[in-house]
Design a binder for these strands. Sequence first.
DNA 1: GCCAACGTTGGC
DNA 2: GCCAACGTTGGC
Length: 143
Amino acid sequence: MSNYWLFKSEPFKWSWEQQKAKGEAGEEWDGIRNYQARNNMRAMKLGDKAFFYHSNEGLEIVGIAEVCAEIHPDSTTDDPRWECVDIKAVCDMPQPVTLKDVKANAKLADMALVTSMRLSVQPVTKDEWLEVCRMGGLDNPPL
DNA sequence: GCCAACGTTGGC
DNA sequence: GCCAACGTTGGC
């Protein structure tokens, strides 16, 4: 039973294209300096699935990733408070789901993307997961 | 580029 | 432990 998440990234800092280029090796999701976001990463298990969202530019969910390393120290700081996971790209959203689309869908009114705008690593419920996958044109969403 | 929302810091 | 000041995020 895996859980579902959403990672935000500004595409000019770390884009979905760059994430995909890392392939199976995945990449450390470093640089998170927010407790709530870190706590969400602490709760992640190997194989958990996540949406990859482009903030600032794009404003859309562009792909699906998977947790490929559980919580460990963030290599970009010596501060022991900050830890992170690694994620790898799984597949593209055939049709990216925009923030506008999410806001326009009553089923997604409680999504953290809408209610906790500034949280950069968010939990996603299974219902939300399925609905966003459906909107993105994924008939057989990774579960 | 602006600015509202909100998390963090630090003085008391 | 409160709260004002400050910094950052992120939509517009």
